[in-house]
Amino acid sequence: MLTVRSAAATDIGRVRKHNEDNAFVGTKVFVVADGMGGHAAGDLASALAVARLRRLDEVNCLDAETLRAHLALANADILDTAEADPQREGMGTTVAGLGLTSIAGTYHWLVFNVGDCRVYRYGGGELAQLTIDHTEVAELVAAGKLTAEQAWAHPRRNVVTRALGADPAPPADVWIVPAGRGERFVVCSDGLPLEVADAQLAQTLDALPEAAAAAAALVRQAVAAGGRDNVTVIVVDTAQQEGGGAGLAAEDAGGAHDASDDTVPRENLGSGSGSGSGSGTVAL
């Protein structure tokens, strides 16, 4: 029986006037979206993406095709909304996330991104970035024109080459990763890697075994290091437990809830200027 525990935290940072990040923490789907286009536009674009992708949490047999279809629909939602209001022209959002699925009776993660929101995996003392940034700088690194160290400090490191809200719809990267025991994943907006290097990220994940503590600490570190952008972090932990049988259980900071309790999923953690968090446990 695979158990998944998750938590999320967000902060406006020290420079921005509004938090344009949005996030969804479900039972098997976890999404972070980082809006672009200014307050009321970027915030709305990321919220539209989250609203569309949260529906994947209700899909019985999630697969890559269904995921890509929902990303395309999110892109259309943003374009339609922008077309209806000229002041929102050009709004968009980057997005990344995880979706748990079963393939031939074995659990796997669908890892996806459009833009420079990221998904990391930490296990066995090693940190790996599972997504590839869709940015000008990432392309220069891939071409051998910049080192990873140079890219981290490059002034154009956050110029994205793909985002939802484009016409035609941008292609999404989707990977299928086996779900192992004792692993943790981080889904984050670019405000985290902008301030926190991989070594510090790995050290924090190693030092703090509770998902809620790790998510909150990473957000605090990003803000303390400069907080030049909004920062949102979801930490997802997996564990293999004895026992079996069908069923779904979930809990959050408020106590235990039945699987049908719609207060378990947390969304729009990034709305407003403060910070927020949520957590849950599912047994699949």
Rank of each mutant, 00 (worst) to 15 (best):
M1Y: 07
M1I: 07
M1W: 02
L2Q: 10
V4E: 05
S6W: 00
A23G: 00
A23M: 07
K28I: 00
K28R: 15
V29G: 05
V31N: 02
V31D: 06
G35W: 00
A40S: 14
G42T: 01
A45Y: 12
A47W: 01
A51M: 01
A51T: 13
L56G: 07
L56R: 04
D57A: 08
V59G: 07
N60I: 05
L62R: 11
A64E: 15
T66M: 13
L67M: 03
L67S: 06
A69I: 01
L71Q: 08
L71D: 07
L71G: 10
A72C: 08
A72M: 02
T81V: 14
G90L: 04
V95Q: 04
A96E: 12
G99C: 05
T101D: 11
H108I: 11
G115P: 11
G115S: 06
G115F: 05
G115N: 02
D116I: 05
R118D: 10
R118L: 07
G124Y: 10
A128I: 10
T131Y: 01
T131C: 01
E136R: 13
V137S: 05
V137F: 01
A142V: 00
A143H: 00
A148T: 12
A151Y: 08
P155R: 06
P155S: 10
V160T: 10
V160W: 09
R162D: 04
G165N: 14
G165S: 12
P168R: 07
A169C: 12
P171S: 10
D173L: 14
V174M: 06
W175T: 05
I176C: 14
V177Y: 00
G182E: 14
G182H: 10
V186M: 13
V187K: 07
L194R: 14
A202E: 02
D206H: 15
E210H: 10
A215L: 03
A217S: 08
A217L: 02
L218T: 00
V219E: 07
R220K: 09
A222E: 06
V223Y: 04
V223Q: 06
A224L: 03
A224S: 13
A225W: 02
G226K: 11
N230D: 11
N230T: 08
N230M: 09
N230C: 11
N230K: 11
V231W: 07
I234W: 08
Q241L: 15
G243S: 12
G244S: 14
D252F: 15
D252P: 06
G254S: 15
G254K: 13
G255D: 13
G255Q: 14
A256Q: 15
A259C: 12
S260E: 14
V264W: 03
P265E: 03
P265S: 05
N268Q: 15
L269K: 05
G270M: 06
S271I: 15
G276F: 04
G276T: 11
S277W: 08
T281N: 01
L284Q: 00
L284S: 01
